[in-house]
Design a protein around this nucleic acid. Structure first.
Lengths: 202, 202, 202, 202
DNA sequence: TATGAATGAGGATTCATTCAT
DNA sequence: CATGAATGAATCCTCATTCAT
């Protein structure tokens, strides 16, 4: 990996097994703190305490609070990227609706899980200076979706990919915040909007 | 549970013209600060300075930082409510697409204006304990849209109203953050998604 | 002391009488803390406490710890500059030894006063990035002395000025740290070195 | 109050060849860190890293940060002591100027080498509680010089020794910090001051 | 009422030192 | 002995809020 000189990006990689566990504990604690109290409650002392670790250890692996946030964002994006790659791999020879259904199912399940966490990360990402790696992942995700759309003859595939992602995220976030937890109820509603946007019938 | 004396709810209403001007200056300054630096940069000293007013005066009208945020949210909602009332008033005797077009146009123009401000307010609203008045406005907006949808035979009008609002907000926010400023390009895309969701063709 | 009113001043100027007193209390406390424990003990909490003021107030007037240090340096230099100007004003028509005696007396009395404070400020000045105003004062001091030397036919007056300042400072610092407090014993020793350096006899 | 077991004083002496190499690496790294960033940047982690050694190893040989600093000071003094002994050995039968020239040459070359390092060590020595061994070395140096001066009929030889050392150090430090690196230009200037102080002509 | 100086709790970050491996 | 992960006290600095003028 190329060392981009941004401090937000610079995370010391653990060299021993014990520290890998520490890093995981910190990351999970960070997610929980964000989940529970949003960005306002997200402070290094709270995260360290919830992780059962000292502040010093936190700073051993994340040189700044923002670096921890960036790691959470990076992981979320990476998860999504993995899901998309999986869908893309299965897309060969299928018709567009089938492919879209896969994407939608992946996106909804991914986003509906911890809506308050997701919302905080999205806000943080929109407001903070984003590190290069995360930015790249973002572009790759859009590009992957756009590629599929393009193959099926959709015009302006990049814009469409962004619009569909935004629309889906908007719907799922709102549903999650409203208290919905049932994917099977939400999925068809998202599908209708997506199909409508693309001008195809189910 | 009834919040008898939540501090966030207790906002003095200005009583004189001179005070009204001060309040306006503070509110506009608050919006600008949020616009420029997001919630992280939103602090009372910065707002007071940008408003050309002392911190003391700020606290004269807004007993806590959150009260100022709540006022911004309330105003945003009130604007939207006004737009919706206007559209509703014109909806008599028109077909659903025409009515929807009005709504969509209103929503897009409203949301696309200051996307970073809108994003911060939405995040704040989702995370902070909301005061009763804003909560009520929110419900009224959904109810107003749901009523229209119901009149035109849409099933589960409340859910639809929330979904459409969420989908539209998601798309417009993303477009705004991406740098789009042209309503005429964004509107038809939103329309396609909305129509698709409702299962009607243009 | 006269506030020289330089354009380069990163310090917020107090607008009320009460805050002027606060600033003075902070500066004097800072000097005392440095005097007592050196740079290692120089921390904002200690200074604020000794000044009988909150940390917040300290930061109201000095945006960083270094700014406070810089102010101490600036004041010390300004004092010296004032002394030198006074001597320079009296130098007209006198012979070099008389002028030098004045300078030496001023320098010794100035430096012997609080040797530990002086030492800390010198070290800080040598190590920290110096602000432009202090740098300019430093040059002015050297230039003023060099001018006098030049008038009396001393070769390489700039180098001589720096050497004499260094030699004097070295001797006085060491004497101060050793516990000497008697100017009248130290002065003639400095004089012998200075005269010797310049190749003149008393 | 007697400090029975001051940590600064307790410095383990290395016993094996391998350890000696480690100790040298640490000491040299410490010097480099001081050279580069002064006392503010002097921390055990930085030193250990630059030495290519773990912090644990550093603490194996130096039980506290101050012990490392003390070792640097002790070495610097020991170097000077060695130089002085060498000069003293050659002093038999020579006249005072010849002897002084030797001393001055030794002192200038010694001090001009790494001025920032020297400055930091001097400051540390002046401010920190000094261990007994270093204190003794210091006295021996003064005594050695005083002895020479006394042999040549100089009054108050102890005071003179201290004054000359201080004057020389002041001049060389300032020259070094100013960027001078040429001994041959600085030496005669120091000589003039020294001779002047002692009231002898070259 | 308006002002802005003052407060101090809270939160970010560093670094000397310890100790399990 | 060597390692480097872990600790937490110490320090810098911010900002919501109060209150004397």
């Amino acid at each position: 990996m190329v060392a981009t000189q941004s401090p937000i990006d610079a995370r010391k990689r653990p060299r021993q097994a014990r520290s890998a566990a520490t890093v995981e504990a910190i990351v999970e604690a960070a997610a929980r703190v964000l989940e529970a109290g949003g960005l306002a409650a997200f402070n290094t002392n709270a995260v360290a305490e919830k992780a059962g670790v000292s502040v010093g250890s936190l700073y051993q692996y994340f040189p700044a609070k923002e670096a921890l946030l960036a790691e959470l964002i990076r992981r979320k994006r990476a998860e999504l990227m993995t899901m998309i790659e999986r869908e893309k791999a299965q897309a060969r020879g299928r018709d567009l609706p089938s492919v879209l259904n896969g994407f939608i199912r992946a996106a909804v399940s991914h986003q509906l899980e911890r809506p308050r966490l997701a919302g905080s990360l999205e806000y943080a990402e929109a407001m903070l200076p984003i590190d290069t790696e995360t930015e790249a992942l973002k572009r790759m995700i859009v590009a992957a979706v756009a590629e599929i759309l393009s193959l099926h003859g959709i015009a302006k595939p990049e814009t469409a990919a962004r619009d569909l992602a935004a629309l889906t995220r908007g719907m799922v976030d709102a549903a999650g915040l409203f208290g919905e937890t049932d994917m099977s109820s939400l999925e068809p509603r998202v599908r209708r909007a997506v199909y409508g946007y693309l001008g195809i019938r189910k």
